[in-house]
Write a protein that binds this DNA or RNA. Sequence first.
DNA 1: GCGTCCAGGTCTACC
DNA 2: GGTAGACCTGGACGC
Length: 306
Amino acid sequence: MPTITLTTPPDFRFWPTAVSHGWCDLLPYQCDENSRTLTRIERLTDGKVVKLTMHNADFKPGALPIQVDGIQKLKPEQVAEIQRKISRALEIDRDLTVFHTLMQTNARYQWVERVGAGRMLASPTMWEDLVKTLFTTNTLWSATIQMCQRCVTLGEIYANGEHAFPTPERIAAMNLDNLNTHVRAGYRGAYLLELAQRIVNGEVDVESWRDPNIPSLELYKRIKSLKGFGDYAAGNMLRLMGHFDRLATDTVCREVYKTRINNGVPAVDDKEIAAYYEPFGAWRGLVQWMDVMQDYYHGPQFNRSD
DNA sequence: GCGTCCAGGTCTACC
DNA sequence: GGTAGACCTGGACGC
């Protein structure tokens, strides 16, 4: 099977990035913590559906091999597309120098650079990140996983019942009843359908939102203009896009603030939480996520050598 | 197996 | 600008 090698920067660590948040457990990603393997079913723009596999054991500083199944011989444009998509998903180009320096100056966060944390696993497309973020709103994580599983069954088949993430065209072509029957996303189904339709008819071009020249506030407004995306969802999307000057405060963050930051005392309101993270300036959203992930990065599932 | 209750974030109507 | 209630599902719990 073909293997592609992705060039990575010196500070990039594969496994801490792969397990940086729950996305690795949402199809079409699959994560095997025992073998330290991340896989993903991906539909290429030429219609080919492939399975991409990345083993932590194969990762060497500066080079991440990607196994490609489902295709005998890769064309140069297919190689380029896979490299581009995985680079985006693993935030290969994210410069965390300033962030890690900031973390070193604060005793509470000196562990961050040591474990290689900071990059967050995203999806290759804004569309997929938006859908998954919508599935995290007003529900439990177990339900998010199930909504995502059912949604992915609408994507193109790879093999053995494995599917790529459905395109917005596929979702937009469905009627609401049919979509709700398949995905069972509840009232979110209407928001999902509207998002897909707005993308397909060209009303919104969400991929163009990656332009680094767009200010965070403008992006925040654009995301919140989408039905179903409130403060938390917009903050989560900004974080996945590398904008960390806003928080994404949900119940988990409130609990973490209470137990880890505030000696067991709940915040009076979210403004109190915002005030704690305010000194971290442009990195506050990422610092908030480090607080959420601290137990995982120090837990038994994670090795410092990863 | 069935019914009830609860958690989760956003939207809408209302003040 | 702030607040209350509705939205929908899965899971826990009691019977």
